[in-house]
Design a protein around this nucleic acid. Sequence first.
DNA 1: ACACGTCTTCCGTGGCATGGAAAGCTTTCG
DNA 2: CGAAAGCTTTCCATGCCACGGAAGACGTGT
Lengths: 261, 261
Amino acid sequence: MPRPPIRTAPGRSATSRALSVLDAFDERHPTLTLAHIARRTTLPVATAHRMVGELCRARLLRRRPDGRYEVGARVWQLGLLAPPTSLREAALPHLQDLVIATGHTVHVAVLEARSALVVERLAGSRTQPTRHSPGGYLPLHCTGVGKVLLAHAPRDLREEVLRAPARYTAWTITDPAVLRRQLEAIVVSGHALSTQEHHEGVWSVAMPVTGPSGVVAALGVLAPLTAPRLADVLSPLSAAVAAISASTADVGFGVDPADEA
Amino acid sequence: MPRPPIRTAPGRSATSRALSVLDAFDERHPTLTLAHIARRTTLPVATAHRMVGELCRARLLRRRPDGRYEVGARVWQLGLLAPPTSLREAALPHLQDLVIATGHTVHVAVLEARSALVVERLAGSRTQPTRHSPGGYLPLHCTGVGKVLLAHAPRDLREEVLRAPARYTAWTITDPAVLRRQLEAIVVSGHALSTQEHHEGVWSVAMPVTGPSGVVAALGVLAPLTAPRLADVLSPLSAAVAAISASTADVGFGVDPADEA
DNA sequence: ACACGTCTTCCGTGGCATGGAAAGCTTTCG
DNA sequence: CGAAAGCTTTCCATGCCACGGAAGACGTGT
């Protein structure tokens, strides 16, 4: 009896399937069973099983004693080589200064996919800066850091994001033309504003952090509407941005030493 | 004219090749050109080119403006889900306490592949603890943290490491029988010693950090030979280990909420 | 202008990825 | 306690797509 060898795999390459398994993990699902992975990736169980085995052999996944899977320590280690790590370390002291100077929450974000990826965030509990939720995504069109990154992003990404800006609050700007004009102004003025466009009761300013080849990140300050003194924030913010840009400049641009092997 | 379709690809699966590209990146090679990647992975250039494209599409790699490749921010973000992150955050305050109590350098490591992966390290410059080189590997058979991890590792890994212990200094123990006896003693006594076995002039003590299902990490103190008071270190070390184990206990064991999708 | 190294594209071949099925295993429930 | 439901693992015939040599485009140094 010939088994129908239906191939439901049209466009996706073997590797892209394996990598899609990694996408099944997120902050709300740090550990998964094989069946969960299969469902979340919409892969057949047998295929998911093979992929997971492959990823475990490469140490990107680990099988825990209880049978569930989790992201492997190797991924953490590889992540240390990614730009956010050096950026974070260069920025951290200046973030603390900025929190102390303004008393508000500050954060740094980089452009990743179609979002702003938060690299570090310090909450201004007035005196003692406390860390919060790095690794999260923010929308590009309605946050301070997002607008800065979007304003300096490649043309096609910008247009793609402007095509259908999602609404978060009553103040979210969803008109592409208005946003486009704002972005142009941001490039000129050097800072971006968002007033309740993402969360009600919160406004933010952000400025670009520049590296050797253009804008590499954005630094933003979040403040409640009850603290509306933009002028008080702009000056320490631009100082912090300058300091971070300076320490980023020489980082990560050592050309590799001669090849070995 | 038929081109000989010589397949030099015997055992390696398509996915394993793609993932081997990631292995080409390390601390000394944070950015690579396509040709470097091909050489370091011993893949044909055409194949490496395809793999790299695949990895870029999955955002695990990024092509920089100058044409070189680097590890993508996505990897950093995924790494936040890996055990070292939560361990690091749980341990950091207690590491600081330990540095202050002992005045020496302390570090935490987890078992990864056949090595001890350093998750965090604080150097005791007597007053101001400074961070140093997380992400590095230490040998299992001649360091304090390594011995602790090895002593509690699965049998086969332990035997494999004991098969041919590499020599680092004149004091490195390379006799499998002697090491095996030490490991047994470590399980009983709860702490491991290494005296100049990895670096001359340095000794270290380490103790296991336990989670809900056994040993998850090791915490070690490094001291110069000129400070040989083991007794002074053991008590604050065991206090720190207990504190970290306690805060690790409830971390990362929330079972996923009901599946979605 | 030439040589050298790098990057990209093309394409015929056959190795291996594919996924349904069935068996083994654990947990849940009547 | 037996059955049912769900999870995990193994098996294997089919044919898709990964493979890599080759050629060409591009950049750079001499």
